[in-house]
């Protein structure tokens, strides 16, 4: 696959060159990581460690700049580690960034491809869309959020989409509803969809996949499994696809959305909820502006 070993280059610092809130609770972070930027392909991810006592957390690479040697990730603050990250600022250095990890997304000329993104996936789906567009597909992108003000990355997506459809739960955009409602809407208007890609929370992946099942549209979903090492050793990200055991980190993150054992994925994902919640009680809560300004 690659001639260089996929590992951390200790000679360089993973400096944050841009840190910005893309939408409430969604952050865009651009990190200096030249080797990763040179190697990355759409659909791949990195695992990073925010600080010395931090844990390893996987993030989809949402864009990269080979010339400047940077990669972009979008993340939501959902736990202690992402809280720490949300409190970092430009110039801060991450302890470690490992990648690119996982298999790249399959890119070919399929015809009409539908891409659905929610939460971090609104940012993460972009490289796949771009590659599909370059491969000559008609690209329809739909993004979902609870409300209009939570949508972001619109300019990027608009630049590669033949059609960009925004849907919101509260109806603050033209379409009220979610990705699965949009799929139905497209099918109703006679659109022929040859392939679908989804990226977002597992719940959204599941219900969106259900929407493409009746038409047997080949559906690829980027699973969110708990991960530790990201190289297939620990087995933490084990999931069941087509009845077979797979590891999201090395066999994925993309799988056939119609073949995933969702219940198992949800159950495994919820396993550490207690510890995750409790961790807040004694780990660095100070996301303090004052501290940052000092």
């Amino acid at each position: 696959m690659t001639d260089e070993p996929v590992c951390q280059d200790t000679s360089q610092a993973f400096r944050i060159v841009k840190m910005k809130a893309a939408a409430p609770n969604i952050y865009e972070m651009v990190i200096e990581a030249p080797i990763i930027a040179r190697k990355v392909e759409p659909g791949q991810f990195v695992i990073l460690i925010p600080d010395e006592t931090g844990e390893r957390v996987p993030f989809t690479i949402s864009d990269w700049d080979t010339d400047n040697g940077t990669i972009t990730i979008f993340f939501q603050e959902t736990g202690v580690s992402t809280m720490k990250m949300a409190c970092m600022k430009e110039g801060d250095v991450l302890v470690s960034v490992v990648g690119p990890l996982g298999k790249p997304a399959e890119i070919e000329k399929y015809g009409t491809v539908f891409l659905g993104g929610g939460c971090y996936g609104i940012g993460g789906i972009f490289p796949i869309a771009r590659a599909l567009k370059e491969a000559g597909n008609k690209v329809i992108i739909s993004i979902e959020a609870r409300s209009k003000y939570l949508l972001y990355n619109l300019e990027n997506l608009g630049s590669v989409a033949d059609e960009l459809i925004m849907s919101t739960s509260d109806g603050s955009t033209e379409h009220k509803g979610k990705i699965h409602n949009i799929i139905q809407m497209l099918l109703d208007r006679g659109e022929k969809i040859d392939r679908a890609h989804f990226m977002g929370c597992n719940f959204m992946l599941m219900i969106s996949s259900e929407a493409t099942r009746p038409q047997k549209i080949p559906t690829r979903v980027a699973l969110n499994a708990l991960m530790v090492d990201g190289t297939g050793m620990c087995g933490c990200c084990r999931c069941t696809v087509e009845g077979k055991t797979k590891y999201a980190c090395v066999d994925g993150p993309e799988f056939d959305g119609h073949q995933v054992d969702w219940d198992e994925l949800f159950a495994r994902g919820a396993h550490y909820l207690g510890d995750e919640s409790i961790a807040y009680q004694f780990y660095g809560q100070r996301s303090c502006k004052m501290d940052m300004d000092d």
């Binding site: 609770n25 603050e77 809280m83 409300s147 509260d170 219900i207 919820a270």
Partner: peptide, 28 residues
Amino acid sequence: PNACIVCDDKKLCEQYRACPMKAGQITG
């Protein structure tokens, strides 16, 4: 923020996301 009140998928969503996510900023 009122998506939690007016969303069509309210019921299904609650069933699958029994535990709130641990976000720093609440957006409904």
